[in-house]
Design a protein around this nucleic acid. Structure first.
Lengths: 256, 256
DNA sequence: CGCAGTATTGATTGATTTCAAGTCAAGTGG
DNA sequence: CCACTTGACTTGAAATCAATCAATACTGCG
């Protein structure tokens, strides 16, 4: 099985393989040897590109696979019984989606393309079977899951007690951090989501989002042209993201 | 290696083994066969009991093991550079601790006993080695990690946009849910943490915590005697936990 | 076809309002 | 002394209401 310019059947993007994918070092196949990489490659299904607004995965679908962002970006939306929609994640290239649904057995939310995007589908039981034989892959999977936990952890700390300004600053820095992790510039990138989405994600009215971005821009911490963002003063932005005057924070380490 | 009334050396609680542990069906060994269970048992280190306030694990320690709560309960506290302390998790019997630190390579926070508690220590590389040979164990590990993700996910949704009342109701129901998962009554249990801790965890002043609990009690949704809690009207409490009037929640599924 | 005319949607900005939750303070009980 | 409760009072962060603007898409018409 060599890299051929003409892909097999059902391959929407002929010739795409993990070993030629620019994200392979960030996604799961990191550190796999050639043969292992091909085995891994063989279980991946490459989905046809999605346009903005298209649904990759519906909430409640039985869990059978995880997804990886190959290009573009996605939002994950949870719909609760009263019909409220809440964005729980944004997913950037190289990130895995759906890991939180293993235990539940069904997908926890809708995954929707924010722009023209492509994703790989990774059947979970096949991944597990492969992981059994490949310690590096197994390790990578643990690390990916752990990373998601760490990110969520950070987000929780972000949300618990931060003001709107602090949230926004944290949000931008989080994106920067992740873009950097995936090989993009952390100082200059495009926000793939609308202001409305940001507001929904951070629990703020969109006017508030707009206002805060305006303020940050006025103070030259960032420069914003539509969705094109530049972070001019990362350190200052970090300062801003730190909780300044938090109401409820007594020492807790040495008492119950 | 049979279950003997006298444990081996370094066993603080002689005779404690996974197969006799009442939590084995909730912790990792679930569904392991007898031999597998013994292999698993062999890598576990049982820590001496900790008293309230004692530290099981310090933030920044190199990651080498995860922990399981055997009895009692723990809080996980993150200390940030300005010296702010924030409780990121409470851990109940049967739950795993430290999974979010695999990727980082060092422990993400202090883990501190809330009462007289015992924990098992599970060296991670040995666990992984074992998991290689035992699909059920591997599966259980994925599920545990996924479960943590799901829980964090829920917590994020809880924190994003809920009022203090809604947070508190969600918090109580979350505890109930977890106690139930671990075989205790979901309607009647003891809050292992102080009001101060609850406030810190939810980002509220402790007076607010107290006030809300008082209010819930007055309305007969719960009955509280010190830390002894009874949930009198679970459905009503659930209603209360639902976001009533959320500011920022426009439809997002079908647009960017 | 192309083009003016018209919604539609996303974003910005200002003015005004409100109420949720913090703060301060006093008191109870183990 | 510490953990918690309760009351009275205050405040300010963010929502709401409202107006405006730019960009894009859609319509029908000559």
């Amino acid at each position: 099985m060599s890299v051929s310019p003409i892909g097999g059947p059902c391959r929407p993007s002929p010739g795409t393989h993990c070993r030629t994918c620019s994200l392979s070092s960030l996604c799961l196949p990191l550190a796999l040897k050639a043969q292992a990489m091909e085995d891994f490659d063989a279980i991946i299904k490459r989905r046809a590109p999605l346009v903005r607004g298209e649904v990759l995965c519906r909430q409640g679908e039985p869990f059978a696979q995880i997804f990886a962002v190959r290009s573009g970006s996605f939002k994950q939306v949870v719909l609760d019984q009263d019909g409220e929609e809440q964005i729980s994640h944004f997913h950037l290239p190289g990130e895995l989606m759906g890991l939180e649904s293993i235990e539940e057995g069904s997908h926890a939310g809708f995954i929707i393309a924010l722009e023209r995007s492509t994703a790989c589908e990774i059947p979970f039981h096949q991944l597990d079977a492969l992981a059994e034989r490949m310690p590096e892959l197994r390790n990578q999977l643990y690390r990916s899951m752990s990373r998601v936990m760490g990110d969520e952890h950070r987000l929780i700390r972000l949300l618990t007690c931060k003001s709107a300004d602090e949230r926004m600053a944290s949000f931008l820095l989080d994106l920067a951090r992740r873009f950097e992790r995936y090989g993009y510039s952390p100082e200059r990138f495009r926000l793939p989501m609308s202001r409305t989405d940001i507001g929904n994600y951070l629990g703020l009215a969109l006017e508030t989002v707009s206002r805060i971005l305006g303020r940050l821009q006025q103070q030259s911490l960032i420069a914003l042209d539509g969705r094109e963002l530049r972070i001019l003063q990362p350190e200052a932005l970090y300062q801003r993201s730190q909780t300044s005057h938090c109401r409820a924070r007594p020492a807790v380490i040495h008492q119950s």
